[in-house]
Amino acid sequence: MQGVVKVNSALNMRSGPGSNYGVIGTLRNNDKVEIIKEVDGAYEIRFNGKVGYASKSYITIVN
């Protein structure tokens, strides 16, 4: 499943599905991501070869 990031500035990509996990990357508006699955209000995603988590509130599914 594919998604597009929709933010005003940037969205943190984290090592786990919550803000208490470390930041492993930054997503920008209109970045395209692969959605692997939904976990606790976040999506597990793949972006630029990395797998991490981002809030589903800022990712629009575009299948």
Score class of each variant (00 low, 15 high):
63 N>I: 12
19 S>A: 13
57 S>Q: 15
16 G>Y: 04
6 K>H: 13
34 E>R: 06
32 K>C: 14
39 V>Q: 06
54 A>E: 01
45 I>S: 00
60 T>K: 13
2 Q>H: 13
12 N>H: 15
37 K>G: 15
1 M>Q: 11
18 G>C: 07
35 I>C: 02
37 K>A: 13
49 G>M: 04
39 V>L: 11
7 V>R: 06
35 I>Q: 00
25 G>N: 06
19 S>P: 15
15 S>Q: 07
45 I>T: 00
7 V>L: 05
36 I>E: 02
11 L>A: 11
51 V>Y: 08
10 A>K: 14
62 V>M: 11
42 A>K: 10
44 E>A: 06
5 V>E: 01
20 N>C: 13
41 G>S: 08
19 S>Q: 13
39 V>M: 09
32 K>M: 14
40 D>E: 12
23 V>E: 04
55 S>E: 15
29 N>I: 05
45 I>Y: 00
51 V>I: 13
21 Y>G: 10
38 E>R: 03
17 P>A: 07
46 R>V: 12
14 R>D: 03
3 G>D: 01
17 P>Q: 04
37 K>L: 08
18 G>F: 03
47 F>Y: 10
22 G>E: 15
44 E>P: 00
54 A>D: 01
42 A>L: 15
9 S>R: 14
26 T>L: 13
54 A>S: 03
36 I>G: 02
40 D>I: 06
4 V>S: 04
47 F>G: 02
18 G>A: 07
33 V>M: 02
62 V>F: 08
31 D>K: 01
22 G>I: 14
12 N>A: 15
41 G>I: 04
38 E>V: 09
51 V>N: 07
36 I>Y: 05
17 P>Y: 05
6 K>Q: 10
9 S>E: 13
9 S>V: 13
47 F>C: 04
28 R>Q: 13
23 V>M: 04
26 T>P: 05
53 Y>I: 03
47 F>T: 03
57 S>P: 06
22 G>M: 14
35 I>N: 00
1 M>K: 12
51 V>L: 11
62 V>I: 14
38 E>W: 04
28 R>C: 14
33 V>R: 00
47 F>L: 05
31 D>R: 02
10 A>T: 14
53 Y>E: 02
44 E>F: 12
38 E>A: 08
46 R>K: 11
14 R>E: 03
44 E>M: 15
23 V>Q: 05
53 Y>N: 01
38 E>M: 07
19 S>N: 14
46 R>S: 10
35 I>F: 02
2 Q>R: 12
1 M>S: 09
16 G>V: 04
30 N>Q: 08
63 N>D: 13
26 T>S: 09
33 V>T: 00
45 I>W: 00
63 N>H: 13
24 I>V: 12
52 G>F: 03
58 Y>S: 11
41 G>F: 08
23 V>F: 05
33 V>D: 00
20 N>M: 09
48 N>Y: 05
44 E>W: 08
44 E>S: 02
9 S>W: 10
15 S>T: 09
58 Y>D: 11
35 I>T: 01
7 V>Q: 03
46 R>M: 12
18 G>P: 03
14 R>W: 15
28 R>P: 02
57 S>Y: 14
23 V>K: 07
46 R>D: 05
7 V>W: 04
16 G>M: 05
51 V>H: 10
35 I>R: 00
39 V>A: 06
11 L>P: 03
57 S>W: 12
17 P>V: 08
34 E>W: 14
2 Q>D: 08
55 S>K: 10
23 V>C: 08
15 S>K: 07
12 N>W: 07
11 L>I: 15
54 A>N: 01
26 T>G: 03
30 N>W: 08
50 K>W: 05
30 N>I: 02
47 F>P: 00
32 K>L: 15
30 N>Y: 08
35 I>W: 01
48 N>R: 10
59 I>H: 00
31 D>F: 04
19 S>I: 13
5 V>D: 01
